[in-house]
């Protein structure tokens, strides 16, 4: 059973620039994933405004009956979020690792255009490895 269902990366204006599905059941079509991404972008922004706590940076974790949504926002406004099985641990660590891979293999690639969809072979390869490693670590518990 996969612990991680899917991964999204959205740019600072709410456009989906990367989407990957890891779940075995129910693939989402492109339009739906775009919709989910921009919906999350808006909810995240609204949560910042509504929060009673000063200096709130937006939702970090959304817990539902059937999934957990962990979100990480970089300083430049790019958001990374994973949808995972409820109660999956170390997701914030995984998001940091994914952010690191993004800065290495996407931002240092001269052929990547900022804010555009990510199509970098090296990013895909290393991401798959990172997720795999995470899965092994979870199974090893």
């Amino acid at each position: 059973m996969a612990a991680i269902y899917s991964l999204y990366i959205i740019n600072k204006s709410g456009g989906l620039i990367f989407y990957k599905d890891y779940g075995s059941s129910g693939r989402m079509d492109t339009n739906d994933s775009l919709r989910v991404a921009s919906l999350w972008h808006s909810m995240h922004a609204i949560s910042q405004q509504l929060s009673p706590v000063a200096g709130c940076l937006g939702i970090e974790l959304l817990e539902a009956d059937t999934f957990d949504l962990h979100c990480f926002q970089s300083l430049t406004g790019t958001k990374f979020f994973v949808v995972s099985e409820p109660g999956t641990p170390h997701m914030d660590g995984l998001l940091k690792v994914i952010y690191e891979l993004y800065t290495d293999y996407v931002l240092k690639n001269p052929f990547y255009e900022m804010e555009m969809p990510i199509r970098c072979e090296l990013f895909d390869i290393n991401l798959t490895q990172a997720i795999q490693k995470d899965r092994v670590a979870l199974l090893g518990r």
């Binding site: 290495d104 293999y105 240092k108 690639n109 001269p110 052929f111 199509r119 970098c120 072979e121 090296l122």
Partner: peptide, 14 residues
């Protein structure tokens, strides 16, 4: 190390 060549650039190598 960090460069992925897009498909449309063929055999180009940095």
């Amino acid at each position: 190390r960090f460069i992925s060549i897009p498909k449309d650039m063929g055999t180009f190598n940095c």
